[in-house]
Computed example of a mutant assay.
Amino acid sequence: MIQFGKLNYQQLRDKFKINSPWDKVIIFILSVLFTIPIFLIGHQNLIDFNWPVQLDRILLFTLIFVIIFLILKAIRRITLISIIVYILFLIGGTVFGGYGFKSVFEDYRSMMYAMLENPNPQDLIISKLLPFPNKYKILNAIEYKNPKVRNFALMATNKHFRDVKEYKNEYFTLIQCFAVFKEINSQWNYVSDPKGSDYIATASESLEYLSGDCDDHSILMAACIRAIGGTPRLIHTKGHIYPEIYIGKKSDLEAINYLTKKVLFPNETKGKTLHYHIDERGDIWLNLDYTAKFPGGPFMSEEILGALTLQ
């Protein structure tokens, strides 16, 4: 018989055995604890079938729970060891910056919020689009390396959301880009171009009065966002140009949805839905138009003709 110090295997197994009915209670609680992180991984990586009341996700959670419950029930004699292993795993993630207690809480909260307040995809941006009008003039006008442009962006990051701690590590740059959006869109004054011409102002020129038409706003927004490490793009429709910002993949959308609506723009988003585009690579882009009061505000519902991404 295998010996462990002064205890053999049978004695060690009996030592960790938990008597009924507490073994069933602990197995149930432990099954829930194990199910949550596994479900979150599946939820973020499996196809969303968009069934009514998120029925596909409810079935997924139930299936994972039943499997884990049956496994733990089969090895109930070492339930205490399972509890210790699980807690040590989360403690390790918390201490060393991995997946810990806070990560489980934030992911689960964001997921539940997104299931109740589901963002709204508008349309799929395909790769075959028309040439972008005035492309090279616009690229030259996006002066993201201009000191005035960067200093303006820095001022915005110090003025807005500086004390936000939530999601600061993972979405630090994006939060700062949202600060730039807030500063520009809260002050932007729409002014038309000279009659009969398409005047394209540089980013530094638009800074002086925070005024201009839609392409001037888009150029300034894109320049400021790129100046602090964000990834913007410009969208061209039949009669309009507006900026968007890259936020990540579908797995990032739940966190951004919660962050935008509950932390950064709670008043502006009250009772409203986030709108976004998905391109052919599965990348998600939020609307930053001057008509939007928050990132992901409603689009102007015009057909998209071109897209200019700024890497």
Rank of each mutant, 00 (worst) to 15 (best):
K135G: 01
N118G: 00
A255W: 04
I81M: 03
S31R: 05
F178W: 11
K262A: 07
D216Y: 09
I26C: 03
F178M: 15
G92F: 13
I84M: 13
M300Q: 14
N287I: 02
Q311N: 14
V32I: 15
N45W: 11
G212V: 04
P266D: 02
H275P: 03
I29W: 05
I87V: 15
L33T: 10
R13T: 12
M115Q: 12
I138Y: 05
L288Q: 05
P133D: 09
H240W: 07
D252T: 10
I247Q: 10
H217S: 03
P21D: 09
R13C: 06
Q10A: 13
D198M: 01
D289Y: 07
F34M: 12
N8C: 04
N257P: 01
L308M: 13
I126M: 11
Y276N: 06
K102S: 13
Y113W: 12
K148M: 12
L139M: 10
T62S: 15
S301A: 12
R226V: 04
K135S: 04
K137R: 13
L88W: 04
L305C: 00
S218T: 13
L90R: 14
L124P: 00
L30H: 11
I200W: 07
N8Y: 04
I245P: 06
D283M: 09
G306P: 07
A141R: 08
W188K: 04
T260G: 03
L310I: 15
T231F: 05
